[in-house]
């Protein structure tokens, strides 16, 4: 079997509103993939399609080889899902709720019993087995939500913003819990919090306004995010000296020139510390050296703009 989750050209319209467009990706067995994007990017929509709650307008999604539309029930039986809102029956006890969820997932009574014991231990809910869910704090409800998602040991675990709306200590605990539980599962996790993906995921898909705009390892993304401004400048003048002069400007991290030295009209790419606008200094340097400034512009990276909309700071989120 290729991937545990295969998503091809998913497009979803709500009425005339285009929520996601041509989303394609694949998740291999055992991978933990982060779905990172600002609010309204289309994360929940994508997850609802993968879990069979919503049908796509175009495109296909398959889990464990079963199409979510044609073989919906088989596909769904391989999924554990924690929706963004953590829906729970507040008038049931933790144990009663888990037993119900196990039963509708088709588990055998004996296995339900053993697994309830195991997930209650894993999610540290031992003291609350017979507590009504309505009496639990948000953080504990989150644990109950996670417990039901992993109860039947699904092949694929889908977690929609699992740390949203709970206090910072519980966020840390919840992440640890996901990390512990993710071991054997294939996990798709959505978040709008940047540090969360680096903590939990092997791979990150970045979604913005319904489109997947990048796919990478968290480490590479981190490098791309290192706060830099990019400038492109075209100069008529000697190449080596120009490179040297540009490098000396305060705040410049790196200068590269892609054209070779034959011509004296060259384009230089400058990386500078974030927050500095080097355009005045660069133009003055060029002029004072007696060279001609042919072009000078800031290069805006679309990925960085998206990052600006993400929550990079934990404090903002809570």
């Amino acid at each position: 079997m290729a991937g545990m989750v295969e998503v091809k050209n998913l497009t979803k319209y709500y009425g005339n509103f285009l929520a996601i467009e041509d989303v394609s990706f694949e998740v291999k067995r055992g991978e933990i993939v982060g779905f990172l994007g600002p609010n309204g990017a289309g994360k929940t929509t994508t997850m609802r399609i993968i879990t069979g709650f919503l049908p796509p307008t175009y495109g296909t999604a398959a889990v464990a080889g079963y199409d979510l539309v044609d073989k919906s029930r088989q596909a769904r039986s391989h999924i554990g899902y924690l929706p963004e809102t953590v829906p729970l029956y507040l008038d049931m006890t933790v144990e009663g709720y888990l037993a119900f969820m196990g039963a509708i997932r088709g588990m055998k009574p004996n296995r339900i019993k053993t697994r309830i014991g195991e997930v209650i231990d894993a999610c540290r809910l031992g003291d609350y087995r017979r507590t009504h869910i309505g009496k639990l704090s948000k953080g504990f409800r989150q644990r109950v939500g996670i417990a039901q998602a992993v109860l039947h040991e699904p092949d694929v675990l889908v977690l929609d913003e699992p740390t949203i709306g709970i206090d910072p200590i519980q966020v840390v605990e919840t992440r640890q819990l996901i990390k512990d539980l993710s071991g054997s599962h294939t996990v798709i996790l959505s978040t709008h919090i940047l540090p969360e993906v680096s903590m939990l995921c092997n791979r990150v898909l970045i979604i913005n306004e319904g489109l997947i705009v990048a796919e990478d390892t968290p480490k590479e993304l981190g490098n791309k995010l290192q706060g830099v401004e990019r400038l492109e400048v075209e100069i008529q003048g000697p190449r080596t000296e120009a490179l040297e002069a540009l490098q000396k400007i305060r705040g410049v991290i790196e200068v590269t020139c892609s054209t070779n030295g034959d011509s004296d009209r060259n384009v230089y790419k400058i990386q500078a510390r974030r927050g500095l606008d080097l355009r005045p200094t660069v133009s003055r340097t060029v002029i004072s050296n007696g060279w001609s400034l042919l072009n000078l512009q800031l290069v805006s990276m679309s990925l960085e703009e998206i990052f600006l909309k993400l929550t990079t700071d934990e404090e903002i989120n809570v």
Partner: peptide
């Protein structure tokens, strides 16, 4: 109202 329909309909129940 409470959204549990999402879990009910995404479980393998007809």
């Amino acid at each position: 109202k409470i959204g549990t329909i999402e879990l009910l309909l995404t479980s393998p129940v007809r």
